[in-house]
Write a protein that binds this DNA or RNA. Structure first.
Lengths: 162, 162
DNA sequence: AATCGATATGTTATCTTATAACAATATCGA
DNA sequence: TCGATATTGTTATAAGATAACATATCGATT
């Protein structure tokens, strides 16, 4: 599965984390964006796994770490990360994942397991926007795209699915 | 724009409506599905335009027609329509539109105007699922797909957009 | 170093979207 | 007509998201 993140297979996840965190840190420095405490913590929380987290999941994590926070704290940090392509919102499940192809993401595409909520980002699917042709024909200007497929990952199929 | 619904151009909308309603009626009869009063009314409301409606918009319409209803009434009818492919949920805006290619829809694709909320369903984009290859490679079984692009339609661009 | 504008955070309250739970009713085949 | 199944009615509440405004921080400029 060369064109997809390792979400559904065993891999060295600490490499995923450190690579993404380093990239974001570097990008923020380069572009004059402020990777504040709250934003960095939220990114780190998202990077802990390939599971999509709801805004309130993130919030709860912040709170259990002694960072007493209300919903806007989480949403603002998530909005920042999404706005700059460091994270994505998975619309179908109203949840967020860290971006695993930072810097290359224009139209992310996801495989979402409805059982374990693991989300794999597809590199190949992201290359082509299937709506582009129609959009041009009707002079519709696309600003943002989401391509999402929900189903069962191999491991959850084995367990008969949920 | 041959491969897209007429959502963003002038057209005989009453033909859209009657065609879709006739098709759904026929399909329900053929498959033994019950197109009850509530379900038919909700479909008719969605068919009135190519604008996506939230569940609570639909609910309000039902109520102004003297059909006193609570949220589950609207959600159940919408769920029925979506489940059988007679309507779609537009995830990005948590709203619903009637299907304009009934019977051919496996992976609908939408162009969503963020200003007027008009939604055009693309036929061509629907043919190919860009995630299929990756899904097969990692033995992920896709059950449902959504492809959505948000932006500005031509007419809202002219008005400088919102 | 003090000031100022811009950006980010803290906090309260509220809004929107969606569903759980259970009782009551309608439908359809045996 | 009975009984199983599907649908509706109703109340309550869960889950997701944002408006509004006060406070604090950052970073450039004097």
């Amino acid at each position: 599965m060369p064109d997809t993140t390792a979400a559904f297979i065993q891999h060295d996840h600490s490499a995923c984390q450190s690579k993404a965190l380093a990239y974001v840190t570097e990008q923020c420095a380069a572009k004059g964006l402020r990777l504040t405490e709250a934003r960095r913590r939220v990114l780190e929380i998202l990077l802990e796994s390939h599971t999509a987290l709801g805004a309130y999941d993130v919030l709860q994590r912040l709170n259990t770490e002694g960072y007493s926070a209300q919903p806007p704290i989480a949403y603002r940090a998530l909005d920042f990360l999404v706005e700059h392509g460091f994270a994505h919102k998975v619309e179908r499940i109203s949840a967020f994942v860290a971006c695993h192809f930072p810097g290359q993401c224009h139209a992310p595409a996801f495989l979402i397991c409805r059982s374990c909520r693991t989300v794999a980002e597809s590199r190949s699917a992201r290359q082509v926007n299937p709506l582009q042709a129609d959009a041009q024909a009707m002079k519709f200007s696309i600003e943002d795209t989401n391509v999402e497929a929900e189903g069962l990952c191999q491991s959850c199929q084995s367990e008969q699915g949920a």
